[in-house]
Computed example of a mutant assay.
Amino acid sequence: MGSELWTGSSERFRLSSVTACGRTTVAAIGEVDLDSSPQLSAALDVAVSDGADRVDVDFSRVTFCDCAGLNALLAARCRCWGAGVVFGVFGPVSPVVLRLFRVTEVIETLPVR
C-alpha cells in the first residue's frame, strides 16, 4: 500500500512524495533552484529517515535546475549512502537540466537513469 504527500507547491515548483513497498519516489515539477531546493532536501531527508530501502528522484518534469538543486541531490545521495539506502535520479529530459548534469559531470557521480 502506498501513500502520497504533496510537500511543496508554488507557481514555479511542486513536489510530491509517494511511498510503496519500501520505495519512496520524490517527484519534482518545475524549477529546482535556490528557493525550492530546501523543500527537495527536506522531502529526501524524510524519505531516508522514514526507513525507505530505496529513494528515487523523478526529474522528468523539472524544467530548470541550478547549483542549489544539484547540491540537494548530491547531499541526498550521501545521506542515502550512509544509511544503506539505494538512491537514484531518473528522467531528466530538459536540455537545461541535462546540460547542467553533463557540465558538472554529475551524470558520472549520481545514478542517473
Rank of each mutant, 00 (worst) to 15 (best):
A52P: 03
R61H: 06
T63H: 05
D33I: 03
M1Q: 09
D35T: 15
V55T: 06
V18S: 07
M1A: 15
S60V: 02
G82Y: 04
F87E: 03
V93F: 02
S16Q: 01
V103R: 09
S16H: 01
L5S: 15
G51T: 06
V57P: 00
F59E: 00
P111K: 04
D50T: 11
D35R: 12
G30W: 00
E31Y: 00
A27H: 03
D53F: 03
L73M: 14
D58S: 01
L34S: 12
Q39I: 10
V48W: 04
V48D: 07
A42D: 14
L15T: 01
S16Y: 02
V97I: 10
L5Q: 13
S37I: 00
C80R: 08
F101V: 06
T7D: 13
G2K: 14
C67F: 08
Q39F: 12
V32T: 01
D35W: 13
F90R: 06
L34P: 08
V89M: 01
L5P: 00
R14Q: 14
P95H: 11
L73Q: 09
S36L: 07
F101S: 00
V86K: 13
R12E: 14
A68Y: 05
G8Y: 13
S3G: 07
C80F: 06
F87T: 06
W6E: 15
F64I: 10
C21W: 11
V86M: 10
G2M: 07
R54H: 15
S37M: 08
A27I: 06
S16D: 04
F59A: 00
G82K: 13
A83C: 12
A83V: 11
V93E: 05
D66H: 10
L15C: 05
S94I: 09
R79L: 08
N71R: 15
A72Y: 11
S9F: 10
C65S: 09
I29N: 05
T63E: 15
V62W: 00
R12T: 07
L44V: 03
A20V: 10
G30V: 01
L5D: 14
I29W: 02
F64N: 07
I107H: 11
G8S: 12
D66F: 03
G30N: 04
A27T: 11
V103P: 03
